[in-house]
């Protein structure tokens, strides 16, 4: 049923797209139709695959690093009042900055290769991961803490056996969000300076008025992001369900 409705929505979107192209008769370098994009995709499938692989590696490494960093930060914040006072305002302030503006700087610091893109992805997902897990850690049901107290539990044992497991569903929702954000980060990194990746391919195609190739690359990125989101959702469903 779910698959069927997804299929119906896809067909509908393609029909609207094709309708606009047929009605307006726009030149194909302005708006290529779905059929042309599909053809271009097929002709360039190896180039697209190669560049998708590059972006995927950046995204997955970024997701892993960002999650580890976010989890460690949240634990530190939850554990120490000093850390909360010193670090939390800074964390919120970084969210007020346009992280995209940092991309050229990251390229300057880390070069044109993999790591400037990983860093960009990490920057984008770090906050959602940290804040969702931190919220979860601070909102342990008070009854559990009372019980632990009457059992003479130390703070470390409470953290390990109660607060962390109780916060895992919050972390899971942060990770699902991060799975959607991370590819955006990597692509922004690629736009600023790179010689491969889907973001690079989109920019290249755009510069040469190969709008059909640009669409093909963009749609591939979209499909990749959705697949990544579904994978993370599936991977986290177990912990989220069990702790509820």
């Amino acid at each position: 049923m779910k698959l069927l409705s997804a299929l119906a929505a896809t067909v509908f979107a393609l029909a609207v797209w094709q309708g606009i192209v047929s009605l307006t008769d726009l030149p194909k370098f302005i708006l290529p139709g779905p059929v042309l994009v599909a053809e271009t995709w097929w002709q360039n499938r190896w180039i697209i695959a190669e560049n998708t692989w590059v972006t995927a590696v950046e995204v997955v490494i970024g997701l892993a690093c960002g999650t580890v960093l976010g989890v460690l930060t949240a634990l530190q914040l939850a554990n120490s009042r000093v850390a909360r006072v010193l670090v939390q305002p800074m964390l919120v302030f970084t969210q007020a900055l346009p992280v995209f503006a940092l991309a050229p700087l990251l390229t300057l610091w880390l070069g044109y290769g993999l790591w400037s893109k990983v860093a960009m992805a990490v920057l984008i997902i770090y906050f959602p991961i940290t804040s969702s897990f931190f919220d979860g850690l601070m909102r342990t049901p008070p009854g559990y803490l009372d019980l632990a107290r009457t059992m003479q539990a130390g703070p470390r044992a409470v953290l390990w056996h109660i607060r962390i497991p109780a916060a895992l569903p919050s972390l899971a929702s942060g990770m699902r969000l991060a799975a959607v954000y991370a590819p955006i980060g990597a692509v922004i990194g690629e736009w600023v300076g790179s010689s491969q990746g889907l973001g690079y391919l989109m920019l290249l195609a755009n510069g040469r008025a190969k709008t059909d190739l640009m669409f093909a690359a963009m749609l591939t990125l979209g499909v990749f992001s959705i697949l990544l989101h579904l994978t993370v959702r599936r991977a986290t469903a177990r912990i989220a369900g069990e702790t509820r």
Binding site: M151, Q152, A157, H161, P165, L168
Partner: peptide, 17 residues
């Protein structure tokens, strides 16, 4: 604790200490 089994819940005090 919803994530722990019955047996684990019964042993919670010992685990916490």
């Amino acid at each position: 604790l919803p994530w722990a089994t019955v047996a684990q819940n019964v042993l919670l005090g010992a685990r916490l200490r």
